[in-house]
Amino acid sequence: MDQAPATEPDPHPEGEGDNATEGDNATEGDNATEGDGVIHTRALTKRFRGGQLAVDGLDLTVPAGSVFGFLGPNGSGKTTTIRMLMGLIEPTSGSARVLGHPMPRAARTVLPQVGALIEGPALYGFLSGRDNLLRYDAADPTADPRTRRTRVAAALDRVGLAAAAGKKAKAYSLGMKQRLGLAAALLQPRRLLVLDEPTNGLDPQGMREIRSLVRELASDGTTVFLSSHLLDEIEQVCTHAAVMAQGRLLTQGPVADLAAGARGRLVVTTPDTGDAARVLKEQGASDVVITEDRVTAEPPDRELADVNATLVAAGVRVRGFGIERASLEDAFVALTGEGFDVAG
């Protein structure tokens, strides 16, 4: 298992495992201020007053320009981490740097360049959507009052709320509130967006819109830090990901590498599943599972074309044959031990 600092995600995915590790450690050693990524934490720890250890020695690095997925079961410490990064919670020990500056000390310099959606939207119900945004913008001392109305209108338009801008926020649906929260994060050009469960409460169409918005922002050069419990969402939009469980970072790195960590499975589609399973076992495949007209197995260590030929020679009518790449979900399950017990 790759330990946390071992895979500092780098912008050059060809950098293979061990070499990349050493190289990045060297970088950390001589240049700790920047280049450690847009977010960089070292041994970040939070113990709440009750003694509960919410975040335990977190070493997280979010590379510039990435769409970074932050995964973990409920209560794994994701939100506490985000709150520490945003200067809302003081770490018990360890350090966090955002955009090259220490948090929470440099909050006034850092936060105007960061848009955040934390634990769902929070709005003033008695104010209209537009007035909510005007208030949040007025709270930012670096925001120019002369362009305030224009920027608010642009943000509302960007999340598709222009038509409902004059409505009181308490009359908004959950999805509309979520959009308004996103609009608040987009009031200014940002270098970093921190989005905690941004598609919560949205219908499939809304989720698609948010995903394309995230891609659009990322292509503008904004780094997006996205926490989600929807694995396929992370897989669809994220370039990098980190997995947390019980306050500890289990792994981090490019999504492709994480998924590759879990081995792909051999999948044979055939009406003759019984025969296929028997032949595959004879060929050295292990963990053979039959589901309807599919037989899946750990691929044997030999030429797969020969395996296919053997199947056909044994009279198995093969409709499909190939390796199914492991999904992030497989990697996630393997890491956190959550989900179904897939052992056959």
């Binding site: 190289g23 990045d24 280049g35 510039a64």
Partner: peptide, 28 residues
């Protein structure tokens, strides 16, 4: 190889630096 990687790491610095320059000037 290590040094090459380290240099590339610094390359990333300049990328983030230029991203900073493109954004809203800090002087406002």
């Amino acid at each position: 190889q290590v040094e090459a990687n380290a240099a590339q790491g610094r390359g990333a610095v300049s990328i983030s630096g230029s991203a900073a320059g493109r954004d809203q000037p800090q002087t406002t």
